[in-house]
Nucleic acid binder design. Structure first.
Lengths: 330, 330
DNA sequence: CCTGGAGCTTAGAGCGCTCTAAACGGTGAT
DNA sequence: ATCACCGTTTAGAGCGCTCTAAGCTCCAGG
């Protein structure tokens, strides 16, 4: 294993001081055009790459943004991909902090902090508000997807309430009267979506019917079993696409036709929703929009001096696909 | 933004030297039981967390393993999750280096090297062999999923050839005679799977039929369009699950029944395969097995002094689900 | 009473970089 | 010849940690 090339090696190669080479590598002003050229040539020749740990230590900046996500979720993955490109554009690098069943959010955050991230993006966080506020005192934190009631925090999110109520409106328009909502276990997001559902049901003069559920495909399967054993409505809204896909798959397996017998809808418009044999009706998360606003917020606080917190709400879009149909006889 | 607590702050708090505190934090032998207790208490009280960049710099070890993956792929995500836990067990941390359409593998690798990863795991790499060999001279590299013909590299992979030929055998047993294989664009993996397909077809006395394809759902959709416009066989094997799901969805959309008219199979047994309304027949990648072997290989080279390279081949398992059926009239 | 460990603790020299302040070599003006 | 000043370069002091070698204290053995 060959020794790593250091700044000093490049300096020796071109006969300059480390300081000059450092400036050239960082693109700092000072060095003459000739010097820049010679240094870059030498660096390239030797295969020099600056050591990030040393640079971070010396400059007291890591130029890294930590992103806590659920790596399983294709929606999170899509967001992360988009943010990677966006961060690159403003000169930052992304550090992914995966949250898994065996590695909770606190652990993911700690790990990112240990790596000296300068800002944190929390996708679909489930952490308590006090914890988020405490974190935000340490470094800029942007919460994506979840409304944080009454707290001073940067948030980028969809109008969950409006999205779900609009979707319910569509279903009502298609003749559905018995529409069930299966909520996720997340407190805030689930509550918003449920509230949107309830208000739309009330507006249509219908009786709301809410079931406990979850956010994974397995949860959707479980919900389906519960409803199959009990009684099926004509339309079911689930917390997100993963749950909806699991739900739909279990119904199909049990011989229930979607959408002829039951219409199903999810939330997120994850790639899953588009890909299945039965396109899933869902509510689109505007990934480029969420990404842009998130990185704008971070940029403003890191490099722009903003101190007030902002709550950016994006209007969602209902995407009708084949998992939803009109009620027979209409 | 409060200043970060340093080792020195803890040392001052307990009235000891930085060296002692450092030893305690690292769990190094030396400090007395009493010292350990006092230091840990003080560290906890002050909320001290060691700075990873500084520790890496001073110790010349980062204790980090870089993982290059395609974050979009649920199969990769699943592997990464599993590896996260496994790495933790041997005292390493994982650094994810996402590969996206806008950030190629070379870029991902460079970024991981800049962060001083001590070893690299390349999931489904597409890099040229020479590049891999060169990398492997810099640090231990384990390639997951792809056979590297004739090169001295650590590899953990499935027996793609055996998997596909076994699956073809199943199809033949179900009465299929016209079985098409849609290959991915990856050179080596695709070639192995294709060879397995060809040999099984030859063994059954059948004419092979291979189409160019890809690894994403969109590629599967495209393949479906091509075949719909032309001619449909009774069974189609695709390079992986994502492509197979896309393929299946396009067929269904065109009114073709799966599996009554066409049987479809993928590869990977990604969560997608289990979740859809039509369970996808596929070849299971043994995620825990791949993970265990990968981390064993890394551990052996990093801490065990192994120098010879190894090629670990895992026997795959065919998972029959409802996307495959018998040919009508059998 | 001296010596030699054993058991703990610490001084101090880096790790590879950044960045400020100071130095350097011209140049044109005086 | 002197000086101020400019563009360019550099010395050197860190950043927060690790780790070796040396130091300290105390006690057993001679």
């Amino acid at each position: 294993m060959a020794r790593r090339i250091r700044l000093e090696d490049v300096a020796a190669e071109v006969g300059l001081s480390r300081a000059s080479v450092s400036m050239v590598m960082r693109g700092a002003p000072g060095p003459s055009a000739d010097t820049v050229e010679r240094v870059l040539a030498a660096a390239d020749r030797l295969g020099y790459r600056p050591d990030r740990a040393a640079a971070a230590l010396a400059s007291r900046r890591s130029r890294m943004i930590g992103v806590v996500l659920e790596v399983r979720s294709t929606f999170h993955a899509e967001l992360a991909e988009e943010m990677l490109a966006a961060a690159d554009r403003i000169g930052y690098d992304l550090l992914l902090g995966p949250r898994t069943p065996h590695r909770d959010e606190a652990r993911a955050v700690e790990s990112l902090l240990d790596s000296r991230c300068e800002a944190l993006v929390l996708i679909g966080t489930e952490a308590p508000v006090e914890r988020l506020v405490a974190l935000d005192r340490q470094l800029p934190v942007v919460t994506v997807g979840r409304r944080i009631p009454g707290a001073e925090l940067d948030v980028v999110r969809l109008d969950d309430y409006a999205g779900v109520s609009e979707l319910v409106g569509h279903l009502v328009g298609l003749g559905h009267r018995r529409i069930t909502y299966v909520r996720g276990h997340d407190a805030v997001i689930a509550a918003d979506r449920e509230a949107g559902y309830r208000s739309a049901m009330a507006a249509a003069g219908l009786e709301p019917h809410v079931l406990a559920g979850g956010k994974d495909a397995d949860d959707g399967v479980a919900s389906a079993r519960v409803m199959l054993a009990d009684d099926l409505p004509t339309a079911v809204l689930l917390f997100n696409d993963q749950a909806a896909i699991g739900f739909m798959s279990e119904l199909t397996r049990a011989g229930v036709d979607v959408p002829a017998q039951v219409s199903v809808a999810g939330f997120d418009d994850s790639p899953l929703a588009r890909m299945g044999p039965v396109g899933l009706t869902t509510i689109r998360q505007d990934v480029p929009g969420l990404t842009r606003h998130t990185l704008d917020l971070i940029g403003e606080r890191l490099d722009g001096g903003r101190t007030a917190r902002r709550d950016v709400v994006i209007r969602p879009e209902v995407v009708m696909r084949s998992s939803v149909g009109a009620v027979a006889g209409i």
